[in-house]
Design a binder for these strands. Sequence first.
DNA 1: GATGAATGAGGTTTCATTCAT
DNA 2: AATGAATGAAACCTCATTCAT
Lengths: 205, 205, 205, 205
Amino acid sequence: MSPIVSEEYKRKKKKEILAGALACFAKKGFQAATIDDIVAYSGISKGAIYNYFKSKEEIYLELLNEQTESANARLAENISKFSSAEEKLEYLFDLYRDMSPFSQERKDRITVQLEFTLHSSRDENLNRILNERGKKFFLKLITDIMEEGQAAGEFRPDTDPSHVSGLFWTFMDGAMLHRVINEEYPYKTIIDYVKSLVLQDLKQE
Amino acid sequence: MSPIVSEEYKRKKKKEILAGALACFAKKGFQAATIDDIVAYSGISKGAIYNYFKSKEEIYLELLNEQTESANARLAENISKFSSAEEKLEYLFDLYRDMSPFSQERKDRITVQLEFTLHSSRDENLNRILNERGKKFFLKLITDIMEEGQAAGEFRPDTDPSHVSGLFWTFMDGAMLHRVINEEYPYKTIIDYVKSLVLQDLKQE
Amino acid sequence: MSPIVSEEYKRKKKKEILAGALACFAKKGFQAATIDDIVAYSGISKGAIYNYFKSKEEIYLELLNEQTESANARLAENISKFSSAEEKLEYLFDLYRDMSPFSQERKDRITVQLEFTLHSSRDENLNRILNERGKKFFLKLITDIMEEGQAAGEFRPDTDPSHVSGLFWTFMDGAMLHRVINEEYPYKTIIDYVKSLVLQDLKQE
Amino acid sequence: MSPIVSEEYKRKKKKEILAGALACFAKKGFQAATIDDIVAYSGISKGAIYNYFKSKEEIYLELLNEQTESANARLAENISKFSSAEEKLEYLFDLYRDMSPFSQERKDRITVQLEFTLHSSRDENLNRILNERGKKFFLKLITDIMEEGQAAGEFRPDTDPSHVSGLFWTFMDGAMLHRVINEEYPYKTIIDYVKSLVLQDLKQE
DNA sequence: GATGAATGAGGTTTCATTCAT
DNA sequence: AATGAATGAAACCTCATTCAT
């Protein structure tokens, strides 16, 4: 009885739903956005949405998974292209700097991501998962570069790699937050400023 | 001719409600926290809460006002005690650094504050107010110090004061966010690291 | 401990409360008017109101009692002054006609009275009481006059007194309703028209 | 691809809700009747009711619209069938007279209608709309007949048509009010009595 | 697979009444 | 007697989810 549709079709449909949900969650926040908002935005019926996701929360989680994974993949892939630690670090700063000007979709993702990050502080389990992932991926991404740079003599040896990594991600999250809430925030300039401070320091003998 | 309870009493009651609300909003988020949560937490009846505040939203706004104002007051007051720009800047870094270890209440406030900041990006009007206030108070606090330091020859003259200010607040928001979501985040160490980077740079001739 | 106040004082206070309640009930309706409205309007505290009346409903009922009784008293007293049935009937028509222009208070009373009358249709018991009273007082007031007039040969004998009476009160209620909802309703003119129709008919031999 | 239920189905559902609401409003009054009353009475869930109407007030207004429109349609349609003004006027009197004995539903409608009419006196805007409609439709209905009758020489020319019209509607509202609150009110007899008074007078040369 | 009407738990807010002072 | 803060039942309305078609 059920028309059997291709996996391709299903994937497309899911993407449509996720895109609608992202826009709605960004616009109103997860709690305030309703399934009807998503229906209105995506043009997909309520029943159909529940065919693809079993709850509003699941949509949210999938949305966040999706973005972390794609971000991770992109980063890991590109970083390996550079040979020196300095270039790698520079690349990371520039990568984030060049996100600006932000597309609406990127702003939406960031808003939703930050909101979710905050929300995670309320859920022991979620929090542990996120921190674990943060350590394993984000923190390590830069400590690896730092260690590489220090081993190669590019960077001063007396700086704790995890401090640089912590500083980087702390700063990027702060910058994205400010960018999202303030159109006039000098996102690029400030990232460049921090980049110069950090690199200057690291290269000091 | 009596239950005209003292203003003192009313103030105290309001504080109790706000304290309960803060805990609940921090624990669940503004949307997810219910009036019944606040009732359960504070032991104050639903009706009484509505005698003091006319809506859940009003409680939220009052909570945020309160914290901004107290923060503003504290900062402005203390900064003026120092005579050199360097000392002032150092004081600011140290002030934020020494917030750690965070009391539960401070974490709650920060969580709620960050959530609200994010939320504000969804409300044109609120957003404008917050950015205005940010510029007038937070940004200016540091650009003033910078200009003072540059005029006095303490700081190198070629750094844009607003970049330092932007960097500072970007960083502090990021650090508080990370601290709130990650118990193990080396908050103090990283703040000291950034402080050293910034001051080192500024004092370079 | 309780200051013992005079009966006079109490009566005055009750009147004040009733006056405030009348205005509020007229303005919003019994259900929609709140005790706080009455507090605001009368300037008397909530506690005090509950010292004099044991519920909002009791205030309402007292208000209606008050007006029926005063109306009854006025009518009965004045009617007896006239000697002929025709004069009495004319007096009644004129009495109602000359209520216009209506003071705000009168309009309020009428609104509340009509609302109550309607409301009474929902309460078996109340309904019976009101109909009883209506028969005993209002209906009888005019059937008595009619019978007097027919006995005296003033009025044609073949008209059922109760029909004239029914017509009169039906009409007056309708006219007051229209007057209350429509500023431009030609209240006096229409009453005079009906009066002329009725008297003309009754005096026909 | 289905539960796009037919328009027919929706209309029926709406009617069911309105019927339930009418009964509840009549029984308790608009304010006192609760959505849960309507749920209990109609057997339709709260959510479903809010799918069809966006507020309790909207249900009320629709109910009143419905009845005015159907009344208007019925009247306008039938009146035109008669050729003489006298017949038309007689038809109107008879139409209202023959509503009795009142079905429960008719009594409900009248109660709700009268309550609403009274209520309208509290809302400037509503009041204007209702009076406008009253003038345009109800008043005009009879002044037209009067003018027709006077032009044709059926009715005496010295009677102001608007007085007859005013008298008619004043009387009918009064009669319906009395009928609704008093089972024993001789509705038919009194209407016939008024009809005879009015027609007698109009036909006098 | 798609649709959207139906459900009802649960949220916010109001307000008559009580009662300590 | 007077006051008004406190109470909590009960009102209106929303919305995630289900399910008949």
